[in-house]
Design a protein around this nucleic acid. Structure first.
Length: 368
DNA sequence: AAGCATATCAACCGCTAGTCA
DNA sequence: CTGACTAGCGGTTGATATGCT
């Protein structure tokens, strides 16, 4: 109750004291275009709406409701106000670690189905969760992702440079290194070795993926498994279609059976890739990949941003700015020749931020 | 202290699915 | 079956708060 009041007070503070009354922010209203008030709700309007709904319910018709109670508001606006702020037991802010986990896991599983995600978090609204994800959670994951990338790049670069030094020590001055030089098999082994794991996307790999995303997902036999826990959540209020989707997602995530290969757009990003990943929701994993990979899809130079998602390393193969069709076959890469590979890799390294500007603490340091 | 940059979040828009006559 | 109407959803906007230089 206190959180509800606190949330309401916060609303009043932010929308009615800080902002001036009657401010019209947007263009044409969607309902009665002439007589609809827009912008922040006043405490009086809140009281009228809340009192009426508590006593009479919505009457099953939001459009007619504002006229019935004398509010110059769009029915959609009334509905939103009630659902997001006025209805009982609404909580704002102060998301717990467990809620973070649930949101992240469900997002990966089912995508931006905020209403379904909200249904798993009592007292939370889809709008709140959406805002929370967009403003904080996504950045938090992005920060972790980038730090991992930086570490991986540094490690790979070190290994390549070491091999290069060894290789050069065997070379006659002035000669061009050949792809069959002692350097190549080892680099090939490095990349191939890292690619191998992506073909084994079983549950362990999924767990790994989530561990990479958030760390806390990885229970490692300690505490309950989130996927198992989701089976116990209710989907009350969700459509049958959503329930089926949700159930399938949970089944997929909790299954220990080998995953089917990823389809559609995700693979189209890497048409020549042998990658056979989990059949996660396209909305979920794919959009997350796009988000966390930054400009990965639009700029091939950044495709490596996805590497730790897939458990493979695309840094050495996809960093030349060539199309994905050229970048994921080792044979094609080999044909580029050693100097170009190293040169392009170094170029790529230079084009990427060398140290992550994202720190978890910086995203959560701000008091609520 | 001031100005700029970034984060937050309430509220809107447009679209889609469901319902009903 | 079809079209009108409504609820609900996800994406986006923009004012304000907060942090940084």
């Amino acid at each position: 109750m206190s959180t509800q009041l606190q949330g309401h007070d916060q609303t009043i503070k932010s929308t009615h004291i800080m902002r001036h009354e009657g401010y019209i922010r947007f263009g044409a209203p969607c309902c009665d275009k002439a007589n609809v008030k827009k912008g922040p709700w006043s405490p009086e309007e809140d009281a009228i709406l809340k009192t009426y709904i508590e006593q009479h319910g919505t009457g099953g018709n939001w459009i007619a409701l504002p006229q019935k109670i004398g509010l110059k508001r769009c029915g959609k606006s009334c509905r939103l106000r009630w659902l997001n702020y006025l209805r009982p037991n609404i909580r704002h802010g102060g998301f717990s670690e467990e809620e973070d986990d649930i949101i992240c896991s469900l997002y990966i599983s089912i995508g931006s189905r905020w209403s379904i995600i909200a249904a798993q978090l009592p007292g939370r609204t889809d709008n709140d969760i959406k805002n929370y994800w967009n403003t904080r959670l996504k950045k938090k994951l992005l920060g972790k992702q980038r730090r991992e990338q930086a570490a991986r790049r540094a490690s790979l670069k070190q290994e390549i440079m070491t091999k290069r030094e060894i290789n050069e020590s065997f070379m006659v001055p002035g000669t061009v290194p050949h792809q069959e030089s002692p350097y190549w098999p080892d680099v090939q082994a490095i990349v191939m070795n890292q690619n191998q794991g992506s073909h084994l996307m079983d549950q362990e790999s999924i767990r790994d993926l989530l561990a990479k995303l958030g760390g806390r997902f990885y229970d490692d036999n300690q505490g309950p498994n989130l996927f198992t826990k989701f089976n116990n959540y209710s989907l009350e209020g969700s459509s049958r279609q959503d329930q089926v989707l949700y159930t399938n997602s949970v089944d997929m995530l909790s299954s220990s059976a080998p995953m089917r290969s990823m389809d559609s757009t995700c693979c189209s990003q890497f048409p020549n890739s042998n990658y056979s990943g989990p059949n996660m929701s396209q909305d979920g994993l794919e959009s997350l990949l796009v988000e966390l990979g930054g400009l990965a899809c639009s700029n091939p130079q950044h495709v490596e941003g996805l590497e730790s998602f897939y458990g493979m390393d695309m840094a050495a193969s996809g960093s030349t700015g060539a199309s994905s069709a050229e970048s994921n076959s080792w044979g094609n890469i080999s044909s580029l020749g050693y100097p170009q590979l190293v040169s392009d890799y170094e170029t790529c390294l230079q084009s990427m931020p060398q140290d992550s500007s994202f720190e978890d603490s910086s995203f959560f340091g701000r008091p609520q």
